[in-house]
């Protein structure tokens, strides 16, 4: 107790921190739009965000794979999130960006319609994904963040990109 009274500043900071952690941790996210929805991924998984660049098509790869790009000498695949989410294709606008993420030592890019902002939200306002979302397998939805005026779909990138693979493999093995 004595130490605490002697060091009020530390106490203040501690209380702030403990309050934060009791309510949940602070999440730093990058939000972007695909179709009509707004999504977000943790900022730490994002390596960089690029303007649209020349994408080389890779024949006989999964349908949602748009192709590969040359990222400063490294060749990485680019996923079309629209196709991945089963949305109609759009003409590429100037707002389209390629978000490059690193997941489990894999570097993958994905295209989004528009990148919105970097924001911090408290994890307490994130709710688990609704039990049933029509037509979508919701594995890769980590939660839904309720902001004042809008909803933010938090994506689990690992599941987003691996679940697909498994589905693909299943499909091909069924076909064979």
């Amino acid at each position: 107790m004595a130490t605490e009274t002697q060091a009020p500043t530390t106490e203040d900071i501690n209380s702030v921190i403990s309050q934060a952690s009791s309510d949940g941790e602070l999440l730093q996210l990058v939000s972007f739009e695909v179709g009509d929805e707004e999504y977000a991924v943790p900022i730490l998984s994002v390596q960089e965000i690029n303007r649209m660049m020349q994408i080389t098509r890779v024949p006989q790869s999964p349908e949602f794979v748009e192709g590969v790009i040359n990222l400063r000498g490294k060749i990485i695949p680019v996923i079309d999130l629209r196709k991945r989410f089963g949305l109609v294709e759009l003409e590429n606008s100037d707002d389209v960006r390629i978000i490059v993420v690193e997941i489990a030592s894999r570097v993958i890019g994905f295209t989004v319609d528009r990148v919105n902002e970097v924001l911090r939200i408290n994890s307490s306002i994130v709710e688990p994904p609704p039990a049933m979302v029509c037509g979508l397998d919701t594995d890769y939805v980590q939660g839904v963040g309720k902001l004042d005026d809008r909803l933010l779909i938090l994506l689990n990138l690992e599941k987003l990109f691996t679940a697909v693979e498994i589905a693909e493999i299943d499909k091909s093995s069924q076909a064979a």
Partner: peptide, 11 residues
């Protein structure tokens, strides 16, 4: 350059 991502396999 390696083309080793799982998405690229098969072609």
């Amino acid at each position: 350059k390696p083309l080793d991502d799982t998405y690229m396999q098969g072609g």
